[in-house]
């Protein structure tokens, strides 16, 4: 998020849409580079291979959520319920594992729960016609309550090593969660850029009325977005409980905010119709790098929160200023 973004984007208006998007991504990348450079000069060892891998690992959960969030935002919606969706999925998966359910089955069940939560959101938005903000605000509380009721408010401890090793391993020195999220990101990119569903998401978010007249299946498209978001929230929770070895019903508190922030920094417009998978990933890494750097500098958590808030506002102001000249 530097001046280069501001200087670069106006040109984009005259170029093709494909180029337009990559230019916005270039802006996000420059922002990331600037932030990395600042921390590199302040924190010795910030750019070490080990810390860079750390940053990726620490960003992976938010990136996973933010990918789903990006698709929902592109469709013109919002999913505030990702944290509680993750929590339900986590506690159910953990309970199943403890009761001796085979690991693959427990994982499928966990993902299934997330997909179901997303499906309910999608149906309420697409068929009942409620506002996405209100729907997911309602399910934010509902899903959280279900997770608390299910566990009686207690954490589910003692997740078996067979499950944990799946999410704690390395492949060629890269942590499994990073690889999983990278695969998800590629899949999301393909979905958005190469499939009719992706085009429908962009069309519904860009102009729902026109998309309807052109025969786009509006309800199916919206539901797909929420289902993916719910499924990815569940996947994020599996990564987390794999790392922690326990599933808490209060897990995932405020996850939605980081996910929205990553998507927005990456160029998703909350008005819908616009967003970038690469941008979202970069956005998640920007947030992760900031937190990592500030922690290494021993900055108090309060100031970390302050810095996160400011970076979001600054990023959005730059975005606004450049789009305003279209």
């Amino acid at each position: 998020m530097s001046n280069s973004t501001a200087a670069g984007a106006p040109e984009a208006a005259s170029k093709s849409s494909r180029f337009n998007f990559s230019l916005r991504d270039a802006g996000t990348l420059i922002g990331l580079v600037v932030i990395m450079a600042v921390f590199a000069s302040l924190v010795p060892g910030f750019l070490s291979e080990r810390n860079l891998i750390n940053i990726l690992q620490q960003s992976s959960i938010n990136a996973c959520l933010a990918l789903g969030m990006t698709l929902v935002i592109i469709s013109g919606g919002i999913d505030l319920s990702v944290g509680p969706t993750a929590a339900i999925s986590a506690v159910i998966t953990a309970t199943l594992l403890l009761s001796g359910t085979p690991v693959p089955l427990a994982i499928l069940a966990g993902l299934g729960i997330g997909i179901l939560c997303g499906f309910i959101n999608g149906v309420l938005v697409a068929y009942v016609g409620l506002q996405p903000f209100i729907v997911t605000l309602g399910t934010l509380s509902t899903y959280r309550a279900l997770a608390l009721i299910y566990t009686g408010g207690n954490p589910v401890l003692g997740i078996p090593p067979a499950f944990r090793s799946l999410f704690n391993g390395n492949v060629l020195g890269i942590p499994t969660p990073v690889i999983i999220v990278a695969i998800v990101a590629i899949a999301a990119w393909v979905l958005l850029k190469k499939t009719p569903i992706g085009e429908y998401l962009l069309a519904v978010g860009g102009n729902e009325e026109a998309a309807y007249v052109a025969g786009v299946p509006i309800a199916r498209t919206k539901i797909t977005a929420y289902v993916i978001s719910g499924g990815l929230a569940a996947l994020a929770s599996l990564i987390l409980i794999g790392r922690l070895g326990a599933a808490e019903p209060i897990l995932g508190n405020l996850w939605e905010l980081d996910a929205i922030a990553a998507a927005a920094i990456g160029g998703a417009s909350l008005m819908g119709g616009k967003g970038s998978i690469l941008g979202t990933i970069l956005g998640a890494i920007i947030l992760g790098a900031m937190r990592n750097g500030l922690t290494l500098m021993n900055v108090q958590a309060f100031y970390q929160l302050l810095a996160t808030g400011l970076i979001i506002l600054v990023a959005m102001m730059i975005d606004r200023a450049t789009r305003g000249r279209e």
Binding site: S17, E199, L202, A203, G206, N207, E209, A210, A211, G273
Partner: peptide, 20 residues
């Protein structure tokens, strides 16, 4: 209001009704 998806390319707008 009812015709175009403003940000999408003219090709994508053309193809919207027959993407399948």
């Amino acid at each position: 209001r009812d015709g175009i998806i403003p940000a999408r390319s003219v090709t994508n707008n053309m193809a919207l009704a027959s993407l399948e």
